[in-house]
């Protein structure tokens, strides 16, 4: 099996650094998600791995082999495009075997691979159709089929599900994960959807403005965000970042006297996930409820503590009136402290 190593990768357009000093390793047979908002350099990184754009500096190794300057076809990889890149004038079958014909794979071998892909993807009834006669989900399957028949050890996916509706997206996500595991592919998957990233990945690489903000497993990314950006990007609703100030005997929430921990508070932010906060009569931080939003399985409370606002997620419907006074509490490990300036996580004293 084949892994990928990215070392000090840089891509500079005329006036703008699209990718800055990016380093990561994709272990063989695992799925790495490049996650980030649009313009963060995740798609550019993927295109550099594919060889569709040229590297400004840095090294790309696939299976231990330096492919930094190799043409795309010599990198042992398949790619699924956001637009699917299906040839509109060719039938489903011809689309799937297009690459095999280019590579002069013998006809019986072509047939074997086609049959296998068609079986995996359930495309049997559509082989003779043109892409325009297929639904979005079926077109997506054809694009996957093309990646499967290539039998390349590495598969790159550039936002493959962004053109599908929510239900289909969920189904295809599961299917992609199953195919990746079943075929033992090494996969790099680009998305801006945190749920896709969390549910698919063995490793998430969170990017922002061309650099890596954090690389971690989905669990780690959720439980131990390294920066305020990572903290806000993962989770719905996102993590609360509460401004702290110096108070009597330690750090306090701005505008209150509630002591959070010993030491300095000025210039720090306290991170709390809305779902990790408990609501009660007694607690660590007294608040006033300003708004209640009912979502079905849970409710979102907007609370005010001094100068700061805190979002809390509670299960089901709670008879909590707007304007009532409550107290919030949480486990010690639910509290994260970040430097306000740099955004980096700080050890809690």
């Amino acid at each position: 099996m084949t892994g990928i190593e990215i070392v000090n990768l840089n891509k500079r357009w005329a006036t703008f650094d699209a990718v800055k000093d990016v380093n990561f390793t994709v272990e063989p047979g695992t799925l790495t998600v490049l996650l980030g908002p649009s313009g963060c350099g995740k798609s550019t990184t993927l295109r550099l791995i594919a060889g569709l754009d040229t590297v400004t500096s840095g090294t790309i190794r696939i299976g231990g082999r330096d492919v930094t300057d190799a043409p795309p076809a010599r990198r042992d990889l398949a790619m699924v495009f956001q637009s699917y890149a299906l040839f509109p004038h060719l039938s489903v079958e011809e689309n799937i075997v297009f690459g095999l014909k280019v590579r002069r794979v013998p006809a019986d071998e072509r047939r074997r691979r086609l049959n296998r892909a068609v079986e995996i993807l359930g495309l049997g009834p559509y082989l003779g159709r043109k892409p325009s006669q297929l639904s979005g989900g079926q077109q997506q399957r054809v694009a996957l089929g093309r990646a499967i028949v290539a039998e390349a050890p590495i598969c790159l996916m550039d936002e493959p599900l962004s053109n599908l509706d929510a239900q289909l997206r969920h189904d295809m996500r599961r299917e992609i994960r199953n195919i990746q595991r079943a075929l033992g592919m090494t996969m790099v998957y680009v998305t801006h959807d945190q749920i896709e990233a969390m549910s698919l990945a063995d490793q998430v690489i969170l990017m922002k403005a061309g650099h890596i903000e954090q690389k971690a497993t989905p669990e780690e990314l959720y439980l131990k965000p390294a920066t305020t950006f990572a903290a806000r990007f993962i989770g719905t609703p996102p993590m609360n970042l509460v401004g702290l100030a110096d108070g009597a005997g330690g750090a306090v929430v701005k505008g209150t006297a509630a002591r959070m921990f010993e030491g300095r508070g000025e210039g720090l932010l306290m991170g709390l996930r809305p779902e990790q906060i408990r609501v009660g009569e007694e607690g660590m931080l007294p608040v006033i409820v300003r708004n209640v939003e009912y979502h079905g399985a849970d409710s979102i409370l907007e609370c005010e503590a001094g100068e700061e606002n805190i979002t809390v997620r509670v299960d089901g419907v709670r008879p909590i009136a707007v304007g009532s006074r409550l107290s919030l509490s949480w486990e010690p490990e639910a509290m994260h402290v970040f430097d306000r300036e740099s955004g980096f996580v700080q050890p809690v004293r």
Partner: peptide, 18 residues
């Protein structure tokens, strides 16, 4: 013609003429 068609073909090693 979408440029991604050309890119998809380039990944498979299709030459310009092909």
């Amino acid at each position: 013609i979408s440029p991604s068609l050309g890119e998809a073909a380039a990944l498979e090693g299709a030459g310009r003429w092909y």
